[in-house]
């Protein structure tokens, strides 16, 4: 019980920092299970309509630029790497290094959103945004609208999670500078890292499911 008076990061209802750390870690994983199901509802809906309207989904997918999608995948994986390094720096108690890795993660996160907004703007110019200006002319227009609805809801929810993640980093940075995190107490950094990796994993599935359907050369549009 002596650690109570030693570490100011220890909350009153825990016995020691190890218990507090384990609880925070488990709570975060439980929260991520929740996040999986949150996106899972969208993925299920996507699966149903892809099964029903495969032709429309192939046509819609071919309107998405593979280059930007792949680049965004690379950017996001890189940011996953930087945040993993940030957690490692926190584990080792290297505050300066932690700060740098978090800043890099933030830059990559903003870059991702920048690329995403280029794509969104492109869709707007082509009249492919359901609810705003959907002017696609095709016998399958209704089904294509559903494809683009899924595209925007899924990538939009993902982008919202990115924005929340960047907000969390803005919240963490002053604490990092203040030296609030040590090798003994770094749960917020670790949990943020878990969150960011989760957002990365969602994109890992979104990219092939949205951008890479029916790209085989034999498909005639």
């Amino acid at each position: 019980m002596s650690s109570h008076s030693e570490n100011p990061a220890l909350q009153h209802h825990f016995d020691d920092l190890k218990q507090q750390y384990e609880a925070a870690n488990m709570g975060m994983w439980a929260f991520l299970a929740q996040e999986i199901m949150f996106f899972g509802g969208l993925f299920s809906g996507y699966a149903v309509y892809r099964y029903k309207y495969l032709a429309a989904f192939i046509e819609g997918s071919n309107h998405l630029p593979i280059f930007w999608g792949a680049l965004n995948t690379v950017v996001l994986i890189a940011s996953s790497f930087t945040v993993a390094m940030a957690v490692r720096a926190a584990q080792l108690g290297r505050a300066k290094s932690l700060f740098n890795w978090i800043i890099s993660t933030m830059v990559l996160g903003v870059a991702f959103l920048g690329i995403k907004s280029i794509e969104y703007a492109d869709k707007y110019h082509h009249g492919l945004i359901p609810g705003a200006n959907f002017t696609y002319d095709s016998p399958m227009a209704g089904q294509l609208k559903i494809f683009f609805s899924f595209y925007f809801v899924m990538t939009g929810m993902h982008a919202l999670h990115m924005i929340i993640g960047i907000g969390l980093m803005i919240w963490l940075i002053p604490k990092i500078r203040r030296g609030a995190f040590t090798a003994e107490y770094y749960s917020p950094i670790e949990n943020f890292g878990l969150y960011w990796h989760f957002v990365d994993i969602v994109w890992i599935f979104l990219f092939p499911l949205l951008y890479l359907i029916g790209r085989e050369p034999w498909i005639q549009l």
Binding site: N25, M26, W29, A30, L32, A33, Q34, E35, I36, M37, G40, G41, F43, S44, A47, V48, Y51, K52
Partner: peptide, 27 residues
């Protein structure tokens, strides 16, 4: 991590599989 955390990490994906398979068996 501990085996328990493997369960926590896998649970979400397992439940997702339940939702997928039982929804798709209808369609």
């Amino acid at each position: 991590n501990t085996p328990l955390m493997w369960v926590f990490a896998g649970a979400g994906f397992f439940w997702l599989l339940i939702m997928f398979s039982l929804t798709m068996q209808d369609y």
